[in-house]
């Protein structure tokens, strides 16, 4: 994406709340949630690791913020970085233990982690138990809580833009480039032989991804005014993976595109029950089988096919 396009997109996102209906703003907020999660997930996918329980980190961020504000009376503003921090700490410990695993072993370990996180919150009544915790307060600005869609859109936008900017920027550092060389055990040994601290880099990258995921999770809980173990369960983890895959894993914007399109599409498919899952899954299969670069690759493929000069 060129600077001009990014600037235009940003401008559109800033103008949007002044022209959109409350419903369109609701959709925009949900899109921003999913786009940020998926971009963060992509940072992990990019180094060859499949995080099959990423929603566990959303849950950690969300619950941290909710416990702080509902049980301990801490300001919801403080809960936002705190949620990111807790998610990051868990990612650090878990990453140190599991990032040595490769391929499916790592994927299943993180999957199990996601299951255990939700089982934990379900087990203890102080954490809301299976029913969850209602009455989550939203942060206040100049003494007024951000109750409307219009008001709450702004913190969500700020975290989304900051998170995505950080993830984007990291890709083009030496650190980000080095991560690409760690996709297999052999290439990792090679990288280490030229002085790349592979284990540290992988853990650092995983932590960054989960901090951003957890931070957005706090806003997600504040937006819903509610958390329970089910909201951020394994279905959400799979959904994020589908968004990323449908958008395309070849570049930074693919997963973001996939998350945006599928989330917006999902909002239109409320009345159809199973057909919604079927539509998602069918899109996924078509993309995987005939469009390996994902939807982001579609314009290039079309140009190549129809030979439009450019």
């Amino acid at each position: 994406m060129t600077v001009a396009r990014v600037a235009a997109l940003l401008l559109a996102l800033i103008v949007l709340p002044f022209v959109a209906t409350p419903y369109a703003l609701h959709v925009a907020i949900v899109v921003l949630f999913n786009v940020t999660y998926t971009a963060a997930l992509y940072a992990v996918l990019r180094m060859g690791y499949l995080s099959l329980g990423h929603a566990g980190f959303i849950a950690l961020g969300a619950y941290t913020c909710v416990i702080l504000s509902v049980r301990l009376g801490v300001s919801p503003w403080l809960g936002i970085p705190a949620g990111g921090l807790v998610a990051g700490l868990f990612a650090w410990g878990l990453g140190a233990l599991t990032l040595r695993l490769r391929g499916i072993y790592f994927a299943l370990a993180i999957f199990a982690f996601g299951e255990i996180v939700t089982a934990f919150f379900r087990a203890f009544d102080w954490f809301g138990g299976p029913a969850g915790i209602p009455g989550v307060p939203r942060p206040a600005f100049l003494g007024t809580p951000l109750a409307s869609h219009f008001a709450f859109y702004w913190p969500v936008l700020v975290v989304a833009v900051l998170g995505i900017a950080i993830l984007y920027r990291l890709q083009y550092t030496r650190f980000g480039a080095a991560l690409l060389t760690l996709k297999t055990a052999e290439s990792e040994r090679l990288a280490e032989s030229v002085g790349i601290p592979a284990a540290r880099y992988k853990t650092a990258n995983f932590v960054v991804s989960c901090v951003i995921t957890g931070t957005m999770g706090t806003l997600h809980a504040q937006y819903l005014l509610f958390v329970n173990p089910q909201v951020f369960g394994s279905t959400m983890s799979t959904d994020l993976l589908i968004y990323a895959m449908v958008g395309g894993l070849a570049g930074f914007w693919g997963p973001i595109l996939g998350a945006g399109l599928l989330t917006a599409l999902g909002e239109q498919l409320f009345s159809v029950g199973y057909w919604k899952t079927l539509v998602y899954a069918a899109i996924l299969m078509v993309v995987i089988m005939v469009l390996p670069g994902g939807l982001a690759d579609l314009p290039r493929r079309l140009r190549a096919h129809f030979g439009a000069p450019r």
Binding site: L45, M245, L284, P292
Partner: peptide, 19 residues
């Protein structure tokens, strides 16, 4: 392509389940 394979099998699973 193990990642694509895994996600494809998730896709197949969702299709069979919803059908």
């Amino acid at each position: 392509q193990w990642m694509q394979l895994l996600v494809a099998s998730v896709g197949i699973s969702l299709i069979i389940q919803s059908l």
